[in-house]
């Protein structure tokens, strides 16, 4: 019963995007169990059979996808499941297939410069800040992925870790900053 309602909500969300948000493109089989928010002027691509849900019995139950500039691009692959997570980009974020993201943030920019003026950041560009996440990655709760990080395939990231350096494929990483424990 829950699955049918989730599929219906996904279809409704797809129709809403076709009518009002033309930069958002959604493929087949999106299932929305809790709440999905897509905000901003940038482009968003969502692949087949994605799943949006919240962790049972938790305070934050919805997924937010933000784009902060018209040139921003977020690409999400097939069979991705997002649990109460946040994806916000100013440049480019690509997420592969079969990815599990659980109650954590993937953020592309710093939003402000380090100056006293607190204006937009000066020394950021597409090549420095782009985030790549490979296939079969799973990211634990309360963890953060910071700008300019590339994560390989088949990586497991332990909950409550801060990923600020890029991580090779086939490995287990944890800590602040996240380091590879086991390969």
């Amino acid at each position: 019963m829950k699955d049918i309602i989730a599929q219906l909500r996904g279809i409704l969300f797809k129709i809403k995007c076709k009518l009002f948000f033309k930069k958002v493109t959604i493929a087949k089989g999106l299932r929305i169990y809790k709440k999905l928010k897509i905000v901003g002027p940038g482009q968003v691509f969502i692949g087949n059979n994605c799943r949006v849900a919240g962790i049972k019995g938790d305070a934050s139950k919805y997924v937010t996808i933000d784009t902060h500039s018209p040139t921003a691009v977020i690409k999400i692959g097939d069979n991705v499941s997002l649990y109460a997570s946040r994806i916000s980009s100013n440049y480019q974020i690509t997420i592969g297939d079969n990815v599990l993201i659980e109650e954590s943030g993937i953020v592309d920019t710093d939003f402000h410069s380090i100056d006293r003026s607190r204006d937009l950041p000066i020394d950021e560009d597409l090549n420095k800040c782009r985030i790549n996440i490979g296939n079969n990655v799973s990211i634990g709760a309360h963890s953060v992925v910071i700008k300019g990080v590339a994560i390989g395939d088949n990586v497991v990231i332990v909950p409550a870790s801060v990923v600020s350096m890029s991580i090779k494929s086939d490995s287990l990483a944890m800590g602040n900053p996240a380091r590879v424990i086991k390969q």
């Binding site: 962790i55 049972k56 599990l100 079969n136 799973s138 990586v155 332990v158």
Partner: peptide, 15 residues
């Protein structure tokens, strides 16, 4: 457990 929502077995590729 590391991941609470382990319904889907396709994520168990690594270990």
């Amino acid at each position: 457990t590391l991941f609470v929502t382990n319904n889907n077995k396709s994520y168990t590729n690594y270990d």
